[in-house]
């Protein structure tokens, strides 16, 4: 059975196990495999085929989800390297930045300032893309999985901020 799925998600999609991957290639493999394996292909098939298709198609979806997003892809690589989660470890510089972000968002939200929130959202997007580049260096060049685990924590925080800003914008618009 393991040969069906590959030993890991990267193998399943025919990719090298790196943080920097060709997303177009991932998309392409995923769609191609899903077209062959999806339960819809076996809707008129036997129970056995249906079960296998359900299992394989689920694996494809879960693997695709894990590799598509930078934070889950990084976490997956860290897990593959045999590292446990890093708890809540972050750098002190990050702690400072974290407080500043929270204050700025809170202020914009309290004063119902949509433009300020929009500006924060744009700035945050830049930060996230810079963090992604940092992760690539730590994982692909330095292979420092402990540091990577810390960076993933920080990355997740920025992703959560993005959701907070979106929710605040949502609330103001309605």
């Amino acid at each position: 059975m393991s040969s069906l799925i590959g030993t890991n998600y990267f193998e399943m999609f025919g990719l090298a196990p790196k943080f920097t991957i060709d997303l177009t290639s991932l998309d392409y493999s995923y769609r191609r495999l899903q077209t062959e394996m999806h339960p819809d292909r076996y809707a008129a098939g036997t129970e056995m085929e249906k079960r296998l298709a359900l299992q394989l198609s689920s694996n494809l979806n879960d693997g695709y989800r894990a590799l598509k997003h930078p934070s889950s892809r990084a976490q997956y690589l860290i897990n593959l390297a045999g590292k446990k989660e890093a708890g809540n470890a972050v750098s002190s510089a990050f702690l400072m930045a974290q407080m500043e972000w929270r204050e700025a968002i809170e202020e914009a939200r309290a004063s119902k300032n949509m433009q300020a929130l929009d500006a924060l959202s744009r700035r945050l997007r830049h930060t996230i893309s810079a963090q992604e580049k940092l992760l690539a260096v730590v994982l692909d060049e330095q292979s420092d999985f402990d540091l990577a685990a810390q960076r993933v924590n920080e990355f997740r925080f920025y992703e959560k901020l993005q959701i907070e800003i979106d929710t605040a914008l949502d609330a103001l618009e309605n």
Binding site: M1, S3, L4, G14, Y28, S29, R32, L33, T35, E36, M37, T46, E47, M48, E49, L52, A53, L56
Partner: peptide, 24 residues
């Protein structure tokens, strides 16, 4: 069903291999 389980997974495996090599 029991005797064809292995056959069914080999067939799906072959399909996967074909899909991946097609992509390359």
């Amino acid at each position: 069903n029991a005797v064809t389980t292995e056959f069914a997974s080999r067939r799906m495996d072959a399909t996967i291999q074909k899909a991946l090599s097609g992509q390359q």
